[in-house]
Design a protein around this nucleic acid. Structure first.
Length: 809
DNA sequence: AGCCTTTCCCTTTTT
DNA sequence: GGGAAAGGCT
């Protein structure tokens, strides 16, 4: 039996006097329940059955959820290992963990409490082999964005498609979107074919990508959930195990679940239906990631005995802030509608400031922070929330200048630095030699004389024979396909990795990492580099090795970096927070700055051109999220001109500013934007979109002259359909017939490429080889052939490099 | 092969 | 502005 129910959790047995019975714990209930209002209490105390908590911003929904977990445990209704608590982001998961620990006074290590992706990865690690793919096993690598793009690019080239004409990025987006929708493309699918690829081509790329991932023992983010679904569907025993195990399921931010996540939850909750979801349709900001607000609406039909509880009393923000947020969101047409109220005083007005440019905006923020800090605020009381991370730089630079302590969430990340990624690639390859993306990254870094040509040959052969590069080397070093010098170097590389691989089992992982970086010459490479940032890179490597100490083993560390791309989450110093609006979901701060409220930037022009009114409404919800993060003071900022992408752009205030009730605001506009707005009214405004790109300083671009959308021109092709595309269409039909997007038997599990190695060559056959010319096969050893060539003499070559002499032109 | 310079392209949000 | 790729030079 693969699953042994761990009974090591000591929640009920920590008492010094011996085992503490659940009944005794229940007497503690009043303490942690104190201060809850009646609906919150109801949400906590409805221990069994499906519960949907529709809760507005700042109504204490996460508190209700965590208290519910505590209550489940304290009343003895649930054992810790029977609880599955799911959040969207790592930060939310960490926060939930903290709160639960505070409530029950116990560590929650090992509990099933985390993000969708981390929990799905955990299950997939246990059951990877149940997927049925030859090479896919528990050591699988989780690919990130960059790996995915590089892989797609090579696959495009293999399929004779030009990566310039058919951007790997667009293909990647399309694939991710399908996956987010659980392969049930309700809205986008057939129109969502990027840049002139006909659907047959895209389907082929998709299939090639998917089977390549399995050959490399790798999966992408979307696969984590999808493979779970596949396993659950083809192996009901596994599904039942988990249905039985997770008797209590809790979900935060339910409005942001996509179809794949929805299906995953539904399958798991099917048996006991003890599922409690908390969400707010007004805070749905992940539509672009496939989030379905409809999942909230569907809850009551999915679970017949569902109980819906509304939390409408806001405990977070002042009256003015709440009123402004409510007025803004009232402009959205698609909403369930909630009326939030607060008993708090109105508080300050909202501070709206128009400033000349981005530097002045940054200066205003730091000045204001310092002045409030002098009045007794801590730095950690402040948050600066931006629409896009590119807006962070100016603010960051300013804060460095004046020496304010700050922390960036979701900006350029530690793990995305080149040296860190290289170091991790070494470790990935040592742990999982089939990881070609890691291989490609470090095969010649530092330089070891294995050039582009050699690497291209190895990788090309690997893809052709549907094996990984390291395995391809095994084959190729026995043959004459590569020059002797190259073979020698490849062998040396392989042996180097092999030695470390052996050390992996005996040596602590931090020591191994240090040794790998030293022995590989990677550290020396940076030591010898004279650029100013080389020293910093070496320090980063030290930091990486140091941070590995926080993990039990190499596997745990690698899992962490692929799922939790956030190093400084745990620093609790007195620092102000700088992050995107998306990253701020679920958080609150006494003082919030919202810079960059300019039309075109926010609401973001792309969001609107791509998704029209729906896009605008999502942007408005984002604004709503931003405003409702603030407890006491709120600053909304816009500038008259901003330096973006190497060019000055003139702008006018966001339409969202106009949607705020004027009597709640104190406005001070020195942006000069109104002047431009006036001059723009003829052309810019009539365009209906913002003027962010309207008039460049150099008179560069005009709204009407924007480049045509790349996504136009989609379906004039009728290429032959691939299995992947057929699958899509089948599912599309299912949905069109009015069926809910459920997994059913009609929908195939991931398709696998069969590994048919038989080539059909026989001894005595006359063949042609591109490099060695014509010859006669003297022996066949699996896929290797020994051939006596007319000109080159006897050589060992690989069957796939050879064609029958008659077929050679 | 390797190194330096130029050119081109992108540029929302994230697990 | 910034990164990747292509081109050009040693």
């Amino acid at each position: 039996m693969f699953y042994i129910r761990p009974m090591t959790q000591d929640l009920f047995t920590v008492d010094a006097e011996g085992a503490r019975a659940p009944e005794q714990n229940s007497r503690l209930a009043p303490a942690y329940m104190q201060g809850l209002n009646p609906p919150q209490r109801e949400a906590v105390e409805t221990l069994e059955g499906p519960v949907l908590v529709l809760a507005g911003a700042g109504t204490g929904k996460t508190r209700a959820l965590t208290t519910r977990i505590a209550h489940l445990l304290m009343t003895g209704t649930a054992h810790p290992q029977e609880v599955l608590a799911v959040t969207f982001t790592n930060k939310a998961a960490g926060e939930m963990r903290e709160r639960v620990e505070a409530l029950i006074g116990q560590p929650t290590t090992g509990w099933w409490l985390g993000t969708f992706h981390s929990l799905a990865a955990r299950i997939l690690r246990i059951h990877a082999s149940a997927l049925g793919a030859d090479s896919f096993n528990q050591n699988f690598t989780i690919l990130d964005d960059d790996d995915q793009l590089r892989l797609l690019k090579t696959l495009l080239i293999d399929n004779n498609l030009d990566p310039k004409a058919h951007s790997p990025r667009a293909v990647s987006n399309a694939i991710s979107r399908w996956k987010d929708r659980g392969w049930v493309p309700e809205k986008v699918p057939l129109d969502d074919i990027p840049s002139g690829l006909c659907d047959g081509q895209l389907g082929r790329i998709y299939d090639a990508y998917q089977s390549r991932l399995l050959e490399l023992n790798a999966c992408d983010f979307g696969d984590l959930l999808l493979h779970n679904l596949t396993i659950f569907r083809i192996n009901s025993a596994i599904l039942e195990t988990y249905q039985h195990r997770f008797r209590f399921i809790l979900v935060d931010e339910y409005q942001d679940t996509n179809v794949a996540q929805y299906l995953w939850l539904r399958l798991l909750a099917a048996k006991y239906q003890n599922i409690a979801c908390v969400g707010d349709d007004d805070q749905s900001i992940y539509g672009w990631r496939g989030a379905e607000v409809g999942n909230i609406l569907r809850f009551e039909t999915d679970y017949e005995s569902a109980k819906t509880i509304r939390l409408e009393q806001n405990y977070r923000s002042t009256g003015n802030i709440l009123a402004a947020a409510s007025a803004l969101i009232a402009n959205n047409s698609e909403r369930l509608g909630k009326t939030l109220f607060t008993d708090d005083a109105p508080g300050s007005t909202l501070h709206v400031r128009g400033l000349p440019d981005g530097n002045e905006e940054a200066r205003f923020i730091t000045d204001e922070v310092e002045s409030l800090h002098r009045q007794g605020r801590n730095y950690r009381d402040f948050a600066i929330l931006v629409r896009s991370s590119s807006m962070m730089r100016a603010i960051e630079e300013r804060m460095i200048d004046v020496g304010l302590p700050y922390k960036v969430f979701g900006g350029p990340r530690f793990y995305e630095r080149k040296e860190i990624r290289d170091a991790i690639a070494y470790l990935r390859l040592i742990r999982q030699p089939d990881d070609d993306l890691a291989f490609e990254r470090i095969i010649n870094v530092p330089k070891r004389g294995i050039g582009q040509t050699t690497v291209a040959k190895v990788l090309g052969f690997a893809r052709m024979s549907r094996i990984s590069a390291m395995r391809a080397i095994d084959v190729m070093i026995d043959t004459d396909e590569l020059p002797a010098a190259a073979r020698k170097k490849l062998v040396a590389f392989q042996q180097m990795i092999g030695q470390w691989r052996e050390l992996m089992n005996t040596m602590p992982h931090t020591e191994l990492a240090a040794q790998v970086l030293e022995d590989s010459g990677y550290r020396d490479m940076w030591r010898n580099e004279k650029t100013p940032d080389a020293r910093g890179r070496l320090e980063n490597l030290d930091e990486l090795v140091g941070s590995m100490g926080n993990f039990e083993n190499l596997a745990g560390f690698l899992e962490h970096i692929s799922l939790v791309l956030d190093t400084n989450a745990a620093s609790g110093g007195d620092e102000l927070s700088l992050m995107t609006l998306h990253a701020a979901k679920g958080m609150e701060f006494p003082v919030v700055f919202l810079p960059g409220w300019e039309d075109g930037a926010f609401p973001n022009m792309r969001a609107m051109t791509e998704s029209g009114d729906k896009g605008l409404e999502e942007e408005r919800r984002l604004a709503y999220v931003g405003i409702t993060r603030a407890r006491q003071e709120l600053y909304i900022l816009y500038v008259g001109s901003r330096f973006l992408h190497g060019q000055w752009n003139y702008s006018r205030p966001s339409r969202f500013v106009e949607e705020l009730p004027e009597d709640l605001l104190d406005i001070d506009d020195i942006s000069g934007a109104s002047m431009f707005a006036g001059s723009l009214s003829a052309e810019g405004r009539s365009g209906g979109l913002g003027s962010l790109y309207g008039v460049g300083a150099s008179g560069a671009r005009d709204i009407g002259a924007l480049p045509p959308l790349e996504w136009a021109d989609k379906r004039q092709f009728r290429g032959q359909d691939s299995p992947g595309m057929n699958r899509l269409k089948t599912n599309l039909d299912t949905v069109k017939r009015g069926n809910p997007p459920i997994i059913d038997g009609t929908f195939d599990p991931v398709g696998f490429a069969s590994r048919d190695a038989s080539h059909g060559f026989v001894s005595g056959q006359r063949v042609f080889h591109r490099k060695f010319g014509y010859g006669i096969i003297s022996a066949v050893e699996g896929e290797k052939l020994v051939i006596g060539f007319d000109a080159a003499g006897e050589k060992r070559v690989i069957a796939s490099f050879v064609v029958d002499a008659a077929e050679a032109s």
